[in-house]
Design a protein around this nucleic acid. Structure first.
Lengths: 150, 150
DNA sequence: AAACAGTCGGATACAGTATAACGTCTCGCG
DNA sequence: CGCGAGACGTTATACTGTATCCGACTGTTT
């Protein structure tokens, strides 16, 4: 189910890539579209299956290459604790975000919390460490599932 | 190279497990010893190889079972971004710690930063999210490698 | 001692995740 | 046109993790 907001995301991605001088090819756009249309993170092989809809015959490297590109461009994120991928909710500015992952319903909320970013940064600089990539994932129960659960 | 401090860690682990009424069996102790003796995180199959030294014939489940136990007891941590494991540097108290991972030399520093824990906690509670597990890994360049690098 | 329950671990097989290596095609450019 | 770079197809394979079944050991109960 591709909603209008998904189309909007894709259009924004087009604009971004053009501005950056990189190519959002058909395959890459397709992977992004599939991720945006999903309410939950998808594994690479789930994406692969989705792309095969309609008799296409594709192999894993195709998906991984597209994902590599999208990750580089900040258009998708990888959830390390799930081995899965999500579309980024605000790809315009470079950012390092954090994720709240509900293990009950599988939903993932991407947050961008300044306090977390700051405390991470200062902890790193205290050790003279130069951060390049930040993985921040909190696994637990979302508000909705906590409600139902009790 | 099992240093004296490694032995100390193992002894502390013995005491901890006894106090908790769980068994640090020979296999589990062995896995912990291998992890503690390594200056860098090890993958499950690297641990497996290390355990095979001396003609023993072992299969993956043996290592994964031991790792599950050690993870539950907080004696080792898993680094999601590396698919690898490290010995915990302070297993006495339950804790959620954070990791600085140098992609140049492979060294990992485990830190326990109150500010990070607090900001994570407050971001979660703002969404009504109940955290169970926290994955915080910063990938970058450690002080030593940054020195040499330039 | 015999029977039993529970835990640990050996062994085989397999599922899921990711990449290496090589070939082809296309496009932009000199 | 000829060339180089990038994107993609294809095959094979490596790496990570689990399911399942079974045997060995321990401690307990009768």
């Amino acid at each position: 189910m591709a909603s209008t907001s998904d189309d909007a995301v894709l259009d924004r991605a087009d604009v971004l890539c053009r501005a950056r001088g990189v190519k959002l090819t058909a395959q890459r756009r397709r992977v992004l579209a599939i991720l945006c249309a999903s309410p939950r993170p998808l594994g690479a092989y789930e994406i692969l299956d989705a792309m095969r809809e309609g008799t296409r015959t594709l192999a894993p490297p195709t998906v991984y290459r597209a994902l590599d590109f999208l990750l580089e461009q900040g258009l998708v994120h990888k959830l390390e604790s799930l081995h899965a991928f999500v579309g980024c909710s605000h790809p315009e500015h470079p950012h390092s975000s954090q994720f709240l992952i509900c293990k009950t319903c599988g939903a993932v909320a991407e947050i961008e919390d300044e306090a977390i970013a700051r405390s991470l940064g200062s902890a790193a600089s205290m050790s003279g460490f130069q951060p390049q990539r930040r993985v921040v994932e909190v696994i637990g129960t979302c508000a909705g599932c906590a409600q139902k659960g009790r």
